[in-house]
Amino acid sequence: MLRIKKLKARVKDGPEILHGITLTVNAGEIHAIMGPNGSGKSTLARILAGHPDYEVTGGDVHFQVNGEWQDLLGMEPHERAKAGVFLAFQYPVDVAGVSNVTFLLAAYNAIRRARKEPEADAFEFRELLVEKAALIDLDPSYLDRAVNLDFSGGEKKRNEILQMAVLEPTLAVLDETDSGLDVDSLRIVAEGVNRLHAAHRAVLMITHYQRMLNYITPQFVHIMMDGRLVRSGDAQLAHEVENRGYDWLKETA
């Protein structure tokens, strides 16, 4: 579903951060990318969503939409969302004046239009939203509040998962969604991800710690260091990193 080949990228006019990433994610798979701070994990996540601050200097990324491979890097951020890519932000942005429900209805219908599915009206959409919010233990009052404004760190992350649950992407990229969460929130967020997971979907988790993986079990774990994937393995690799840290990988890289 996702094919990243020799991807090189930098912050616009800055030094290169990704030095050639190659990664394939198939439908039904859960991948985790782990690595120390500054290794380029979040850069990769943001580039997949089309963040304007980054510039791709080499390689390519293809994404499968309805069985057809498309050049992901040639698409605008909104086109990627419509194609089925979702990025759960590490630092969700607040939007004053725009309520959660207004924002999500606009996004939901934009994506429905792109998929040639009928649009929802405000009433049926609210029902859907209330139902999804209950699953992640988010009080319905949050739906009428401005997007992420004055939300706690954990509420912001849960709001990201709510958006994911509503927009139903085929590829969910979670950028350190576990950071800043207490144990209960972590469990709720993980359940939200597991609930969405299906044979035609895939998850790419960016994480610093292994603890999220106690709730979501990846088939593949990749270690990123200095802009390169230095090792890939199964869930066992995450435990090894948890016990031994990252330094031993530096030597073997």
Binding site: P52, A81, F103, A107
Partner: peptide, 20 residues
């Protein structure tokens, strides 16, 4: 970018912000 990453094009995103 946040709004765009949820499927709204620039026009729709600006419209949402201004209307809000």
């Amino acid at each position: 970018f946040y709004l765009q990453s949820r499927g709204l094009d620039t026009e729709a995103a600006v419209s949402l912000l201004v209307n809000g």
